[in-house]
Design a protein around this nucleic acid. Structure first.
Lengths: 246, 246
DNA sequence: ATCAAGAATTGAGGCAGATCATCTTATTCG
DNA sequence: CGAATAAGATGATCTGCCTCAATTCTTGAT
């Protein structure tokens, strides 16, 4: 069951609808051949969203699944009194639709202008059911997400504020590297400080303060408000893993 | 992909090795027919563990997968300095092996005398690969676990100590009900207060104190140290969801 | 039964991060 | 461009949970 995406994909003709899709190798589509890809593509459509626009709400029927191709989203749950927990952020290549429930377990909302492929869920399921590769890929995605969720439980249950921020930045860097296939020292933060706080189980004030500490320790630098540069990755790593008192 | 376990299973002859297995309908095996079940069973063996005994450690190669049939386990991750996050507790019917990594992401340790079916991972994978039902079931399990992990993130990121305890007890009650198919008012706690604390992101002292509060509010009663009775489920529910100040 | 050892409870005080308030810096829009 | 508005940073104070320290209870061995 330890199946991973095909390492090499055949080049597509420039006229193919998926040609040039930044997400292709990373997403579900990665396991499909050219012919299948066309069939797959024909199942659904394309969709764009503007910042702040919700894709769906917690509790909505899950009639569609999505594949992010550009931009980013946050997904979150709310408690009745308004407390919010951000479950994660989605970037190009990420698949939004791992669930066997009829209702969405969370709300999804665009952080910036965002593009995605959209599929009717029943047609998607039918398509997947006939392609063992695809099923295995889906399982693999779910298993990865589960591992990530468990890492986040450690963060939320046992890490200090500084450890949480450091872990978060490193995680973002790694995801950017997976997308770009090259080492990354500067990271975009398309989400607000409040989003970060709600993701890390903190308040926006604490996020600001810890950010200031990390800056002062010369571990990071704020290029702009929404873009940081990692100055000392080893130092950040040491903090993230709890190897230093902070 | 919204496949669930078969609702009704054919009765097995009393001589069948899986006859009387408390976990059969719940576990992976639930989708298998009698013939297949025998084949499946022949892939692996049975194993018993005593309290405190580790099944495997974080980082160990994942050469086997397991299906709990009796007893219970805790699974946890450690930070380098010894801080611990318990990721969850496993009961009969639960499957231990959702992963595509070559190394275990956590340590698993028996809480009480515990029995399980054991399968070599490569043989298990081969078996699964030929049975789409089984693959779908595995995906379904992973999706469920992911949803549970996300609920736990809300708990760890945003709930108060009392809310965490209340949520925990209700969750245990629901799991017991899924196993026994009958309403449950008394719950066994095979884990220590420290295990509970490390699961809920608290200390054992806080767990003790909140337990005392819930007792005093007549929401629960301690039958013994390791068994509580739920006296007011609605009240607990209200707390768990954060509908009451506590 | 009695004792020992571990587990759980209870108490006192401290602290990391929350809350509330203010100020500063971006961004938007007329 | 400049005012309006929102986002972020910073300061002061508060508090829920943690830490450290005794007890008390439970359990298993003799």
């Amino acid at each position: 069951m330890a199946t991973s995406a095909a390492a090499v994909l055949p080049a597509l003709p420039a006229t193919h609808p998926c040609h040039g899709c930044a997400a292709r190798e990373l997403a579900l589509c990665g396991v499909l051949q050219e012919g299948e890809l066309a069939t797959f593509k024909s199942l659904g459509g394309h969709q764009q969203m503007s910042p702040g626009q919700p894709l769906f709400h917690e509790g909505d029927p899950t009639t569609q699944v999505f594949n992010i191709t550009r931009g980013s989203l946050k997904i979150y749950k709310l408690l009745p009194d308004g407390r919010r927990q951000v479950m994660g952020f989605m970037f190009p290549g990420d698949f939004l639709g791992i669930s066997i429930s009829d209702e969405h377990a969370f709300t999804a909302e665009a952080l910036e202008p965002t593009h995605m492929c959209r599929f009717a869920r029943n047609r998607f399921d039918d398509f997947v059911e006939e392609r063992p590769d695809m099923e295995r890929r889906l399982y693999s995605l779910a298993a990865h997400e589960l591992a990530a969720a468990q890492a986040q439980m450690v963060l939320l249950g046992r890490k200090s504020a500084a450890e949480r921020l450091a872990s978060f930045f490193l995680d973002l860097a790694q995801r950017a590297e997976r997308l770009g296939r090259a080492p990354v020292t500067a990271i975009d933060l398309p989400m607000s400080r409040l989003d970060i706080a709600d993701y890390l189980g903190l308040t926006k004030e604490t996020v600001s303060r810890v950010l200031a500490q990390l800056k002062q320790k010369r571990l990071i630098r704020l290029v702009t408000l929404n873009r940081i540069e990692i100055l000392d990755r080893e130092g950040l790593d040491a903090i993230a893993q709890g190897l230093t008192d902070n």
